[in-house]
Design a protein around this nucleic acid. Structure first.
Lengths: 217, 217
DNA sequence: CCAGCCACTGACCGACCGGTCGGTCGTTCC
DNA sequence: GGAACGACCGACCGGTCGGTCAGTGGCTGG
């Protein structure tokens, strides 16, 4: 400890500030959190927050950037290898959901940003990341379709929106689901949910007989 | 005009305040909007806002209540009549999406509330409404399943989450989709999307041959 | 006409906000 | 030892916030 360079100490404070800010901004949004509250949560003075970040907005943007970088690192390519389609989708779905829950704060922050209309550069940053994420998935579905592994009538964009949307609703309604005891074992619930979503997407929801008829038209 | 009761005049001011608050709260969240801003937008003095509403929070709750009542009035029962399943789902899907876009402000407000963790009574109010909405849909799917119109392995809750989730992602990403010229005719886009979502859910996404195999296991 | 009521408002209040400033302390280097 | 620098902070600043208050004007009913 006596050989710690001073830079490490400053890095620690910055890290604590960023972590506190991320959590609080995720819970209450930009305007719902004072710099005083962030400073207290980080165990530094408010003036120290401004020593490291030029403004509250700069701090917020640093938090968003950090989140965006982390999100990028978690960007999932839906693999289009030779494994059965259900397996590919389940892996993706499970991983995507797990990422959401592990980084719930960041994810909530991103959703808030999507809801803010008339905001500025931060919105563009988030949109870029989400756009990349979305496009990767759409491209993968297009590839699978070209390989004849998806039905001809399937529209990759719509499929992507449906799959991602199911994760979204699961995430947004997690509190309600938890109250009903449906998330007692989160890991298990996420696993089950992934499987169910993929199963219903693969085989469709109609009974076997009418499913065949639908594909005939 | 000379026979207007004074009560009408006060009602008009309250209405304007509520409308302004709803729009602004929907755009920026509770903490992102000052009472001054609301008053200006409503064309009244700030003090007048406090004449009609005891506090900013009371105004917010009035806005939420109003939204919740309107949302309840829009509660869609997925009808389980004798029409073909695709038609039932498409009607529901289309109507649900249309409601979202027509009441984008209220809907955004609700989503923000879902993202606020550690909030109070307002959260319960919103959750109650969403819970009702969700349960109605799950019950309808359970009914359809009991009628043998859904495949045996389909889990009504998961299907509800998937369907509602697809609407959610469409709504949240509408800005990105619009930039890509994919929402040039919103009504048409919503219609097309509804149809595509339902089609892929009904028949599944796998090519016809593998879809049959899946149902055999 | 007058009293009572209600809608409305400008001015004001204390609290809190984001941000600044002068200063301290510890570390490093010459 | 002293200068320079960076991390850190208490006190302070002007501005904004939600909310209050005394007052005005219009309307209604007796």
């Amino acid at each position: 400890m006596e050989t710690q360079p001073p830079e490490t100490s400053a890095t620690e404070a910055v890290e604590r500030i960023l972590a506190a800010a991320e959590r609080l901004f995720g819970e209450r949004g930009f305007n719902g959190v004072s710099t005083r509250l962030i400073a207290d949560a980080a165990g530094v003075s408010k003036a120290n927050v401004f020593h490291h970040f030029t403004s509250k907005l700069a701090l917020y943007e640093a938090v968003l950037s950090r989140g965006a970088e982390r999100f990028k690192a978690l960007l999932l390519q839906l693999t289009t290898d030779d494994r059965p389609l259900p397996e590919l989708l389940e892996d993706f779905s499970l991983q995507h959901l797990q990422n959401m829950f592990e980084h719930a704060g960041t994810f909530s922050l991103f959703l808030r940003q999507l809801l803010d209309t008339g905001a500025g550069a931060e919105r563009t940053l988030i949109e870029n990341v989400l756009e990349q994420s979305f496009d990767l998935l759409v491209d993968s579905f297009a590839t699978l379709k070209a390989q004849g592994r998806l039905a001809d009538g399937i529209e990759p964009r719509t499929l992507a929106l449906t799959l991602v949307g199911s994760h979204l609703s699961f995430f947004l309604l997690r509190s309600m689901l938890a109250q009903r005891g449906e998330l007692d074992d989160l890991e298990d619930s996420v696993d089950t949910f992934s499987r169910q979503v993929v199963d219903q997407l693969i085989g469709g929801i109609a009974p076997a007989a009418s499913a065949s008829r639908n594909h005939e038209k």
